[in-house]
Amino acid sequence: MATQDFRDGGSAGNAADSVQRRALDDLFSLTYEELRRLASAVKRSDPSATLNPTALVNEAWVKMSRSPGFVGTSPLHFKRIAARAMRQILVEAARRRNASKRGGAEALTITFDEALGTNATSDRQLLALHGALDELERLEPRQAAIVESRFFGGLDVEETAALLNVSEATILRDWRAAKARLAHELRRAI
C-alpha cells in the first residue's frame, strides 16, 4: 500500500497522530485526484489545462492548510510533504503498470480508457530514479531532499534554500551535481 510509508513514518497511538495520519491520507488522495483530473483535462486538450505539479502543490496547500492535521505546518514544510506524496503516487503508479505488463501478482486486469500517451520508458526511468534517489539519500540526505523538493514538488531555488536552511548557491551546486549523478545512474539502469 502506497500510503503505508506515511504511516510507518510516525509513531502510532495518540489522537494527534491519528489526525496527522488522516491528514496525510487526505493529502495523498487529493494529490492523486488532482493529478488525475489534470491528466484527463490534458487528454481532452482542454486549452486551459496544463499538468503542472507546482500549481498542484500550491492548490493542495490552499485546500488543506485549514485541516486540523496541518495546523502549525508552514507552507514550505507542507510543500515538502506534498513533494513526497507526489513521488510516492507516481512511483506506485509506475510499479503497478510495470507489474501488470509482466502479469505479476498485482497485475491490473482492467484498463479504463484509451492511453494518455503510453510510454513504458517513463515507467522504467521513474522507477530507476526512485532507486537512485534512495541511494543518494543514504550518501547525502540534503541532496536527496533537494531533488525531491525541486523535481517532485516544484519548489524553486529560493524556497528550497529556505526549507533546508542553506544558501541558494549551495542549493544550485548540490542540485547540479545530484542531477549529473542521477542522470548517469539512470543511463546505466535503462
Partner: peptide, 11 residues
C-alpha cells in the same frame, strides 16, 4: 507533468 501523464496512462 509530462512524466505524470505517461505514468498515469494505461499500458
Amino acid at each position: 507533468g509530462e512524466l505524470a501523464q505517461h505514468v498515469l496512462g494505461n499500458d
